[in-house]
């Protein structure tokens, strides 16, 4: 049953123009800012200032993650808004199956696109790295973790957004809520003077914690370690999907 459901969801995903657009935006806005930042290293920071070049080249994700959020939200919200969800449930009555199939198809797509994007970012980052800096290398453990981890970060973001969208069943509400959830701590924390409180917030907020995976230097200064940070994001995604699963069964289509 899940196989058929998976096929259905995959077809839905790949036959919609939004998917192509979202993934294109993901690529463009990930690579662009990162390249810009890395190439400006020369002027801003001599090699001794020990900048985290890998993290810089991955910085664009803070913006491009919105593309993934939109893609994830739309896979659910549009169905509810056009009542196409009824057709879906008529074809596949197992609602959890449908949710799982959506999650799986979405994740595969995002991970695949994310990997391609990361490889491109890596290549571009290497290319624009000014002379005098250690070149980016995937053989380097932390760098590999940073790039690979970001792919996982995008996948988890998609799952979190999917869960939220299933709960609210509305496009604008879904995007707004996920955006608020992600951006609240990085933005509002700038107004907090208390170092300790700020760190606490950053440790438990999905975006701040999740992005810790991108750091390759200065790990001791981070509010949370790379893998624990990703685990925090995973916990949010799991919680959202869990609530979504309960609601999707309980509510009328």
């Amino acid at each position: 049953m899940i196989r058929r459901a998976l096929r259905m969801e995959w077809t839905k995903l790949r036959t919609v123009r939004t998917s192509t657009w979202s993934l294109a935006c993901l690529a463009a806005f990930s690579i662009g800012p990162g390249a810009l930042l890395v190439s400006s290293l020369g002027g801003m920071c001599p090699p001794e200032c020990d900048a985290d070049a890998a993290q810089l080249s991955l910085a664009g994700v803070r913006l491009s993650q919105l593309a993934v959020v939109v893609l994830a939200v739309l896979t659910v919200s549009v169905e509810y808004e056009t009542t196409m969800i009824r057709t879906t449930f008529a074809a596949v009555p197992g609602r959890i199956t449908v949710l799982a199939a959506k999650a799986l198809a979405l994740t595969v797509v995002v991970l695949a696109a994310g990997t391609v994007t990361m490889l491109a970012m890596f290549g571009v980052g290497r290319a624009v790295m000014p002379d005098g800096y250690p070149p980016l290398s995937l053989a380097d453990g932390p760098t590999l973790r940073a790039f690979g981890g970001t792919v996982l970060y995008l996948g988890l973001t998609a799952l979190l957004a999917l869960g939220v969208a299933t709960i609210v069943r509305h496009t604008a509400a879904g995007i707004s809520l996920v955006a608020a959830l992600f951006y609240v701590v990085p933005i509002a924390a700038q107004a907090i003077g208390d170092e300790h409180f700020r760190e606490q917030l950053q440790r438990y907020a999905p975006m701040s914690a999740g992005l810790a995976i991108q750091a390759t230097k200065g790990l001791d200064d981070l509010p949370i370690g790379p893998w624990p940070g990703l685990a925090v994001l995973a916990a949010y995604a799991a919680a959202a999907l869990l609530i979504a699963a309960v609601l999707i069964r309980a509510r009328d289509a």
Partner: peptide
């Protein structure tokens, strides 16, 4: 608002 954090200049 976010970029301020990162942009070195």
């Amino acid at each position: 608002q976010l970029a301020g954090d990162l942009i070195p200049s």
